[in-house]
Amino acid sequence: MTRWLPRAYLVLVYLLLYIPIGVLVVFSFNDSRSGYTWGGLSLRWYQSLFNNNAMVEAMWNSLWLALSAATVSTVIGALTALALHRYRFRGKKVLNGMLFVVMMSPEIVLAISLLALFLLVGIQLGYVSLLLAHVTFCLPFVVITVMARLSGFDESLPEAARDLGASDFTMTRTVLIPVIMPALLAGWLLGFTLSLDDVVVSTFVSGPSYEILPLRIYSMVRVGLKPEVNALGTLLLVFSLVMLMLSQWILTRSKR
């Protein structure tokens, strides 16, 4: 008798979550200059987006940064997860703790601490500083994804490999990597998205020589309503939707 109530509630919340996004997408095809009134269908904002050189460059920079940050954090994250899973070593808890701190501490704290480090050590603010920072905040997510995969994994396989005389490296390459492959891909995609979306950390550790998309959007959005932002937002939405479906697909397929 009260079954419809919870369902209606769910629908309502989903509506609230999706209305702003829907409006954004619809208005990205709006011909009118003002962000509020409908002036007919048009692709002009997509056009003006791609005619904006600074924007296109920021887009490439962002993609490249996300690509490299995701890759590096996947490699290091996977190795960390393997180390945590397989090796006994002193300070394991400390290592775990540090990863936990990165994941839980407010982004802004991570941002200023990295800024302080880069200035002290003399790392130029630009691509390198951004890469180091992005890898750092993506790392725990990759570790967790891979650890989850490893925890359900049959320990006898690596043992057998070792008994057959495989070195640690060979065993990792031939036995473990294939097993954690889906987790690696999922972790990579997560890292890619996190990097592409980050505003807080990037605000602090970027330099003028390497402008990235979120910061460009930030300055555009602060200036006022710009229909180009709708177009850009729609593109990003489609892009992350594809990424997300890809990662879900990989994860569910690997479970079977």
Partner: peptide, 9 residues
């Protein structure tokens, strides 16, 4: 000031 040494601008 932040970018003092990196000759940014």
């Amino acid at each position: 000031k932040l970018l003092d040494d990196s000759a940014a601008y």
